[in-house]
Write a protein that binds this DNA or RNA. Structure first.
Lengths: 191, 191
DNA sequence: CGGTCTCTTGACGGAGTTCAAAGCTAGTGG
DNA sequence: CCACTAGCTTTGAACTCCGTCAAGAGACCG
């Protein structure tokens, strides 16, 4: 399972077996069943998660008490409440497994030590954050430029795997509208 | 003017006068009047911008030909089309000065060389991207949890300086609605 | 003081929400 | 392997937030 992480790292940095072993020591490997929470809104956010197998989602409860999903993470994606993680503060989000999920986790202290000891990991994380930020910048663009209907179809086209693996009401939530409206959109397309 | 950059850097890394001089060589310093573009949609995005004095905005033309602003940058903020910058591709956005603006710019090749030569700058940029990503994650949360009216008032509260310095129609655009509706919201509040 | 850019007003329409109920599907235990 | 149940998806009707359009009122600049 750890091989997934090694293969992923090698896309960004050169790394040998011994080094990888040293790096792994900073992480914990865990596995949770579907529906289980890794982090709960209001609790201090200590860890950053890397998905090895499965899907996680990030969400919060809006004022009506409805869960609002804002991010998914599949294999080789990182996920956390970054603001809370960085400042060691209570989280504004919860994180939950959608499928049975295996993942690595690293605490902020461990991450700091890791980056100090392995400058190539500083390089790696700089690239990871840079890409994550670039992706979220584009997401905001799509969000503002498309109608909800166009937004849904562009999402399906870009991430067909999500539509397979994630229930529709979560996709609707992620895209910022109701499951009822998503159902209506889909009906239009089929006919 | 360069002192602004040095003071900013010192919040993240230790740096002496000689080193700062070396680092500065990777940048160009420029100044543009209000309304001038630094980057135009469709043209290759080569530079990353750091605002010393003034305000920049990032925007694109939607299908109706209306400018949609998605980001502002004031003093000590970085701004670019990150996706295009990273891949050296044509930009999906334009960047324009709102006020007369002085800024530093660095090309991607220069940034790569800078980070290779000064590992502490790799550390600096890792932190910058991490924060930018965390902020955009929270922005998405606000975007999805608030009504347009609440979103406007929370924005005014968090960034009063923007409301002072930026015309209302740009703020409306940034928040994802029309200047007419913003006007209506403001009328409600006053009465 | 003229002209252009920005902000306000109001009438109307439509995209998307809400609520309630029925139809499906998949997982679970017997 | 079937039956039951809980959770997910679909339907439809009423409603509302917000966009569109068009016109007027300020404000700022040369």
């Amino acid at each position: 399972m750890n091989e997934i992480f090694k293969t992923h790292l090698e896309k960004f940095i050169k790394i040998d077996e011994r080094e990888f072993g040293e790096i792994l020591k900073f992480f914990r490997i865990q596995s949770v069943p579907a529906k289980q929470n890794l982090l709960e809104e209001g609790k201090v956010c200590r860890d950053y998660y890397f998905v090895l197998k499965g899907i996680l989602r990030l969400f919060f409860l809006n004022e009506k008490g409805v869960e609002q999903t804002t991010e998914f993470a599949i294999e080789t994606w990182w996920i956390t409440d970054n603001m809370a993680y960085e400042h060691g503060r209570p989280s504004s989000f919860s994180i939950q497994a959608i499928e049975k999920t295996a993942f690595l986790s690293i605490s902020r202290e461990n991450q700091e030590n890791l980056l100090r000891e392995f400058p190539k990991m500083e390089h790696y994380f700089r690239l990871i954050y840079q890409r994550a930020y670039a992706a979220s910048q584009m997401r905001m663009k799509y969000f503002l430029s498309y109608s909800k209907e166009e937004f849904y179809f562009s999402f399906v086209k870009s991430y067909p795997e999500f539509v397979q693996r994630v229930p529709q009401y979560l996709i609707a939530s992620y895209l910022g509208f109701t499951p009822e409206y998503l159902s209506e959109i889909r009906k239009r397309q089929i006919s």
